[in-house]
Simulated assay, not measured.
Amino acid sequence: MPFPDELGAGVSVVEYDPAWPGEFAVLAERIEAALGERALAVDHVGSTSVPGLPAKNCIDAQVRVADLGPDLIDLMESAGFRCRPEPWNRTEVSFGQACDKLVFAPPIGERLTNIHLRRADTPNTRFALLFRDYLRADLAARDAWGAFKQRLAQSVPDLADYGQIKAPATTLLMLTAERWAAESGWTL
């Protein structure tokens, strides 16, 4: 759930903004400064990482780490980021496997972001990168996914409901992404 300062007027899916990659780059530098060598890689993931894809105006970053030690919370919070406390921001199921993670919000008053810390060797890390790369490669899938999200946002203004309804559709999208990965030779 969003922190109180992040609450807006429902779900809004906007047209792709070419400024998003630059905003991610600034965020990535801050994350790398906060985590140092603990950050094995910082990836732009989610819908804002796919050129031409409509998205919620929230930058998603994935930080690949070797482990999710408690020191990561201290390092991120020392840089002003806020650890999201909800159970779904601590564990997620990807490809049928429960995977631990940590999710951080920006400091109060800064642009909306979600920073996902995930172990580099887990299915949820692969999931985020496959989602991005598949939609970058298949423009028809990208356009269909964007149109679906825009229609859903118009009819379901509650963020939690939006996410619950989008989840099964994401599963279907990722089945086609897996087929694309096998056919194209894509690997993490």
Rank of each mutant, 00 (worst) to 15 (best):
P2A: 06
P4G: 00
D5K: 00
D5A: 03
E6N: 01
L7K: 12
G8I: 01
G10E: 04
G10H: 04
V11K: 01
V13N: 04
V14A: 13
E15L: 09
E15Y: 02
E15M: 07
E15R: 10
Y16H: 15
P18Q: 07
W20T: 07
P21M: 07
G22A: 15
E23H: 10
F24V: 07
A25W: 08
A25R: 11
V26L: 14
V26A: 14
A28N: 09
E29N: 08
R30N: 09
I31Q: 06
I31D: 05
A33V: 11
L35P: 10
L35E: 05
G36C: 05
G36A: 09
E37T: 13
A39L: 07
A39V: 08
L40V: 11
A41Q: 09
D43N: 07
H44I: 03
V45T: 02
S49D: 00
V50L: 00
V50F: 00
L53N: 00
P54A: 02
A55S: 03
N57I: 00
C58Y: 00
A61Y: 01
V63P: 00
V63L: 03
V63Q: 02
R64S: 15
A66N: 01
A66R: 05
A66H: 02
D71F: 03
I73Q: 14
D74V: 11
D74N: 10
L75A: 11
L75R: 13
L75C: 04
M76R: 02
S78H: 09
F81N: 04
C83A: 15
P85Q: 13
E86A: 13
E86F: 02
P87F: 07
P87T: 07
N89C: 15
N89A: 15
T91I: 14
T91V: 15
E92R: 12
E92N: 13
E92Y: 09
V93M: 11
Q97K: 14
D100N: 12
D100V: 08
K101F: 09
K101T: 07
K101C: 13
F104V: 08
A105R: 08
P107M: 04
I108A: 15
I108C: 11
G109Q: 07
I115H: 05
H116D: 03
H116E: 06
H116T: 03
R118W: 10
R119W: 06
D121F: 01
T122G: 05
P123F: 03
P123M: 02
N124S: 14
T125S: 14
R126G: 06
F127S: 04
A128Q: 07
A128N: 06
L129M: 10
L129T: 03
L130T: 01
L130Q: 01
F131Q: 01
R132C: 01
D133W: 00
R136M: 02
D138M: 05
D138N: 09
L139T: 14
L139A: 14
L139C: 07
L139H: 14
A140F: 11
A141V: 06
A141G: 05
D143V: 08
D143R: 13
W145E: 03
W145Q: 10
G146P: 08
G146R: 02
F148A: 07
A153D: 06
A153S: 09
A153C: 10
Q154W: 09
S155M: 12
L159A: 11
A160H: 11
Y162K: 01
Q164C: 12
K166C: 08
P168A: 11
A169L: 14
T171V: 14
T176W: 13
E178M: 12
A182N: 12
E183S: 13
E183K: 12
W186D: 12
T187I: 12
L188T: 15
L188E: 15
